[in-house]
């Protein structure tokens, strides 16, 4: 399922003295199966954009095409459940949405709302709980007895249980310790690869954008400023700096090395392994000469 934004504008509290333009003239397409990273300085409109992807917000101008549905400014749409079933969203600090007595019930809440039979929902809960790295005993516990990191995982399982075709992630690892961060991002990446889930990741971590994304969008002051492959965008650090953004550590290191040595590596490296490989190659070239 493709998602398309066409000249979307959104104003909060439109028509009051508190009106605030959050995004304007935003157009891009999210083709099926892509891993898209959305980056930008705080307040640049990232969260506002992703709330359009499952019709939580209706544009104040322009339109959003989600599969075969069109959400446009001014027209009130009925029955948006079908859209929301297909687009699952993990919000920032998703553990705040937990409310049921047991973890199992909480995970089943989404699927049951979308008309999945209870038995099937429970089956999904059982298989998901291990997928997010927790043991099955957790299912019968109260979510409020878990640690912060475990609650986060339960909340994520609750979104995955809807079996969405598109997964939207708004800074899913904020506030976790380094190990938790890596485990959760790796899990999303596996899901993306194994089930071909389109994934939209809003992040402040350029490292994550470099590691996981196929495509990247740079937001600034409510507008899309740049769009392209992470490798291409990261090879122009000055342009990103203009939007208050940095490049991943690896890339920064590479640029430092190139500046000091006057050499140029063959490509912009996105992982530490790539960098080591390229450096080894450059060294070999030097010795051969």
């Amino acid at each position: 399922m493709d998602i398309q934004l066409q000249e979307v504008e959104y104003r909060y509290a439109a028509g009051t003295p508190f009106e605030r333009l959050a995004i304007e003239d935003v157009s891009f397409t999210i083709p099926e199966g892509v891993f898209l990273a959305v980056v930008g300085h705080t307040g640049s409109g990232k969260s506002t954009i992703i709330q359009h992807l499952n019709a939580l917000l209706r544009p104040t101008k322009g339109q959003v095409v989600i599969g075969d549905r069109v959400i446009s400014a001014g027209k009130k749409e009925k029955n948006l459940k079908s859209v929301r079933k297909k687009v699952g969203t993990v919000f920032q600090f998703p553990e705040h949405q937990l409310f049921e007595e047991t973890v199992e019930k909480d995970i089943c809440y989404g699927p049951i709302n979308f008309g999945i039979p209870e038995e099937e929902a429970k089956k999904r809960a059982r298989s998901l709980i291990s997928q997010v790295g927790l043991s099955e005993e957790v299912l019968q516990k109260s979510p409020f007895d878990l640690s912060g990191g475990q609650m986060r995982r339960v909340a994520i399982a609750g979104v995955l249980a809807m079996e969405p075709e598109v997964l939207v992630l708004d800074e899913p690892t904020a506030g976790l310790d380094p190990r938790g961060r890596k485990e959760i991002m790796d899990m999303f990446y596996t899901l993306h690869q194994e089930h071909g889930l389109s994934t939209i990741l809003v992040t402040h971590s350029m490292e994550d954008a470099a590691l996981y994304a196929d495509e990247m969008i740079v937001m600034h002051k409510g507008r899309v400023q740049k769009q392209g492959k992470p490798r291409d965008l990261f090879s122009q650090p000055d342009e990103l700096a203009a939007f208050g953004l940095s490049v991943p550590e690896v890339v920064r290191f590479q640029h430092r090395f190139e500046a000091l040595s006057g050499m140029k590596l063959d490509r912009t490296c996105l992982t530490i392994e790539e960098l080591a490989e390229e450096l080894a190659r450059a060294k070999k070239r030097g010795e051969d000469r």
């Binding site: 380094p178 190990r179 080591a276 490989e277 450096l279």
Partner: peptide, 16 residues
């Protein structure tokens, strides 16, 4: 925990 990037990179470079 984790280690800083320069330490990680040094480790990998030494292997090479």
């Amino acid at each position: 925990l984790d280690v800083p990037f320069p330490v990680k990179l040094s480790e990998i470079l030494r292997l090479q």
